[in-house]
Design a protein around this nucleic acid. Sequence first.
DNA 1: ATGATACTTGACTATTTTGGTCAGGTTTAT
DNA 2: ATAAACCTGACCAAAATAGTCAAGTATCAT
Lengths: 141, 141
Amino acid sequence: MRLTSKGRYAVMALVDLARFDGINPVSLRDISLRQGISLDYLEQIFSKLRKKEIVQSVRGTQGGYILNRKAKEIKLTNIFDAVDEKVKTVQCKKESKKGCNGKSTKCLTHNLWDELETHINNFFDKKSLDDLVKENLERRF
Amino acid sequence: MRLTSKGRYAVMALVDLARFDGINPVSLRDISLRQGISLDYLEQIFSKLRKKEIVQSVRGTQGGYILNRKAKEIKLTNIFDAVDEKVKTVQCKKESKKGCNGKSTKCLTHNLWDELETHINNFFDKKSLDDLVKENLERRF
DNA sequence: ATGATACTTGACTATTTTGGTCAGGTTTAT
DNA sequence: ATAAACCTGACCAAAATAGTCAAGTATCAT
């Protein structure tokens, strides 16, 4: 299973950005400073977010990024998906036609990981970016 | 988050073993052959399972491992815990006194990971080894 | 007793993933 | 024109993963 800093940074950055939704673009430099994330790394992350149409870029001076949809419509699954955080553990899944360990049958835990995946995705499907923004409203940034 | 082959192998091996619960010890060699897991690697895994009193070893010829408790009483959380599969993503957690990124406040996603962790642990707390054995009863091994 | 079976332990290692950095762009507001 | 900001691809060090290897020790069957 992979749920690492990249996904976490993506969410942090988008929560930061979402506060300005509809006001003005937010530069990665600002996000970098506020959230303590390397600028170069943010650029990689936002490149992926842009390709998946979660954000839009505004080039040039005073440029930055803006949300491409409303915060309420951006679910955490979308974000993790964009930055390639797969909520999947299992090698089992790779060779879908055959069984798991190169054998012809599924491994003894195959269904288990299926269920877990569903369980986790349910969690992330319910949470939107907007939810997180609201949870953090009273906080200092 | 870390949920990798080691945890998966541990569960597979224990499901295999649990079928003989109360009958006779199962050698790692047999598990290795049936499940397609390296013997040396299994030894590492079972060393940890033994230390956490999930299995007991029986040395000598016809030896092997047996469950130390009933399959119904072994929850998947116990297994993952034994083999050091932490269901935790977050660096946030390390420095519990301070905030997350070395800052004085929690990061914007801190609560999120807390909730996720609870969510996943709930899932694994409900599942026992016995559940998995039953799910696989009709299958060939 | 003695050999085979099986557990025990610890060191070692190749590969992959992660979490970045670095360099060299291009675009656009002012 | 120039600085701010995005854009892209290559590169890299450290850590984690998934093992292997070696050298035992304990116990049972014969």
